[in-house]
Amino acid sequence: MRSRVIGAALFGVGVLALVFAGGLAFVVAPQAERLPYDLERTQSVAEAPNARFMQITNGKAEVNQATLRSTITVQPDAKETAKLDGSLDGNAVVWLVGQEVIRTDTKALISAYSTSLALDRKSGAAQQWDKQWLDTGSNRQSVNYSGQIYKFPFGTEKKTYEIFDRDINTTQPARFVKTEQINGLETYQFTQEIRDATQPLPADRLQLLVGQLVPGATTGRVSYSNTRKVWVEPTTGQFVKVEETQSKKLVGDNGQETVILDAVFTYTDDAIARSADTAGSNRQLLQMVNLWGPLALAVIGLVLVIVGLLMALRRPRVATVGGSVPEPRRGSGRHADTGPAGDADPGRDGPQKADR
């Protein structure tokens, strides 16, 4: 009786473990692979040693050379996220992003922008949202974001993705190149090539630059090229390393041109280490929820169910006197095994038969 009670208890615990395994795999795991609403404020820093760049001081534009440092800050906008409705409600999160580029020797500000955008919580891609904006320092303007910008999808695949480029306000394909170990973490490298695209500028700003940097030209354009390499941790879709080889030329309508940017921006070692550490920790958490947790619970549950069934269905042992069942004695045919009344007395029956 006691074994049946224990078996039933083990069976119940095993079933409960299987239920938890299914809940972890099919309910908790899909929610874990989404951008959180309470994302902590993060920063990524990249530097471009010996860069050539245009610097405007008191309205005068000139081309200088120094090391540039770019800092991008990302933080969630809980207030705007709470206002999302329709298909975006519950499926998107609003981020506030800002970038500053300074020269490291004088700390002078070279360029800056701030922006607000909505990202899909699963794919990390920019979503259509009527309140998104971009401010490059002169004025706040509307922008139509799309594609990947600051993050790749959870479960990044070895395929081509569209990455949005802020300088030309559109997406360009980034193809998968290879896998690479960075700080002990496996990453996917993607490369985006932009060649001789035109960077849009306000007419008055463009005219100012042409007048100062391309003598003799009446108008012109900014020719923009960029080879963007992104190393992504595939489970989380987080950027671990970014490298951008940027080139900008001011081309006048008279055929003359001036290089206004020639720089290779790469995440600093500290930025790479922090990104790899964060991505590695998040990867372990996701694997625990998606794989190891459900698998462990399923194995434990199955073992307990089987053991519980075996114990509950086992037949009880028959209790006996003295610990064993007595074997019947072999009699002479006169019910010799029926007890004292049937016992034969050789000392009595034998002589009587002999006298006859």
Rank of each mutant, 00 (worst) to 15 (best):
I260T: 04
G237H: 05
E243N: 14
T236K: 03
T258H: 08
T245A: 15
T235H: 01
Q256V: 12
A263N: 03
T236W: 01
T236I: 07
G255A: 08
V259H: 06
T258D: 10
P234M: 01
N254Y: 02
G252F: 00
L261V: 08
F239I: 06
G237V: 11
V259T: 14
V259W: 09
Q246I: 13
G237K: 01
D253E: 04
V259L: 09
E257T: 09
K249R: 15
L250R: 00
G252Q: 00
Q238Y: 14
V264T: 13
Q238C: 11
T235G: 03
D262S: 11
F239E: 07
E257S: 15
E243K: 13
K249I: 13
T236M: 02
V251C: 07
V259F: 12
T245I: 15
E244W: 12
K248A: 11
V259Y: 08
D262F: 02
D253W: 09
L261F: 09
E243I: 14
K249Q: 15
T258Y: 03
K241N: 07
G255H: 06
G252C: 03
P234I: 03
T235D: 07
T236Q: 03
I260D: 01
E257K: 10
G237W: 02
Q256K: 15
K249S: 14
L261K: 11
K248P: 14
D262K: 08
E244F: 07
Q246L: 13
L250D: 00
K241G: 00
Q238P: 04
V251F: 13
V259E: 11
G255C: 10
K249C: 10
K249T: 14
D253P: 11
D262Q: 09
E257Y: 14
L250M: 06
G255E: 11
P234C: 05
G255L: 08
K241I: 05
K249P: 11
E243D: 15
D262I: 01
G255Q: 09
D262C: 05
F239K: 06
Q256S: 14
Q238T: 11
V242G: 04
V242C: 05
Q246W: 07
F239Q: 05
L261H: 08
E244D: 15
V259Q: 12
T236N: 06
V259P: 10
V251P: 01
V240M: 04
Q246P: 08
A263Y: 01
A263P: 01
P234G: 07
V240N: 02
Q246T: 13
E257F: 13
T258G: 06
E243F: 08
V251Q: 09
E257N: 12
K248W: 03
G252M: 00
T258E: 12
Q256D: 11
V242N: 08
E244R: 15
K241T: 02
T236D: 02
Q238E: 14
V240L: 05
V264D: 03
T236G: 03
S247R: 13
N254V: 08
T258Q: 10
G237P: 05
D253K: 09
N254I: 06
E243V: 14
G252R: 00
K241C: 03
Q238I: 10
V242D: 05
D262E: 07
Q238H: 12
T235E: 11
T258L: 08
E244I: 06
S247K: 15
V240K: 01
G255S: 09
T236V: 07
T235Y: 00
I260G: 02
S247P: 06
V264I: 13
G255D: 11
Q246C: 09
D253I: 03
D262M: 00
T258W: 05
T236A: 04
P234L: 02
G237M: 08
Q256F: 04
T258M: 14
